[in-house]
């Protein structure tokens, strides 16, 4: 075979090879940069992870029950576990998980502890009261309903996510 029969000349071969290798190198450098630029957009929204509270769907009733669970909190430069609570129950067929933090000044509310209002959430600090669904009762100090957790059911178990403000 003579050189003229080669389909690819030596010069072309070198050009292709260098372009190919160069391309890979460029791609290798650019990919992380692109990822960095897009990363915030790719992040799952909300940020808060769902945490199991150790209750199954069957454990729930209309009667609010308190669950305690742990979440990881990043505070400044260290991560720590913190215990959280929620009032979980069925309300009009849906699972409702209310945050126990009074929307007035942040005390912890309890369910049914005030004898005169056994069907309400009650805050011992300034006698704030909330309906069963968390709606604040006018005339008591709180000005908005109790916050709600995002609820997810996985394999019959209750998972709680981030806390959302209402009203």
């Amino acid at each position: 075979m003579s050189e003229k029969n080669h389909r690819v000349s030596r010069r072309q071969f070198l050009t292709y090879t260098l372009t190919g290798v160069g391309g890979f190198m460029a791609a290798g450098m650019l990919a992380p940069m692109v990822r960095m630029a897009l990363d915030p957009a790719l992040e799952a929204s909300g940020g808060a992870e769902f945490v199991s509270v150790g209750l199954s769907e069957d454990d729930l009733s209309e009667e609010p029950q308190r669950v305690d669970f742990n979440v990881e909190i990043v505070d400044g430069w260290y991560t720590s576990e913190q215990s959280r609570s929620a009032w979980v129950f069925l309300y009009e067929g849906e699972i409702l998980a209310l945050s126990p933090t009074c929307t007035h000044l942040g005390c912890t509310v309890n369910f049914g502890t005030n004898e005169e209002y056994p069907d309400q959430f009650f805050c011992p600090c300034h006698f704030g009261r909330f309906e069963r669904d968390g709606t604040n009762i006018p005339g008591t100090p709180p000005t908005r309903p109790l916050d709600v957790y995002d609820v997810e059911v996985r394999d019959g178990m209750i998972y709680l996510g981030q806390i959302n403000q209402r009203g």
Binding site: C102, H104, L105, G106, C107, T108, C123, P124, C125, H126
Partner: peptide, 8 residues
């Protein structure tokens, strides 16, 4: 403090 944060 956590229980009675609003008054204490």
């Amino acid at each position: 403090e956590r229980q009675y944060a609003g008054r204490v």
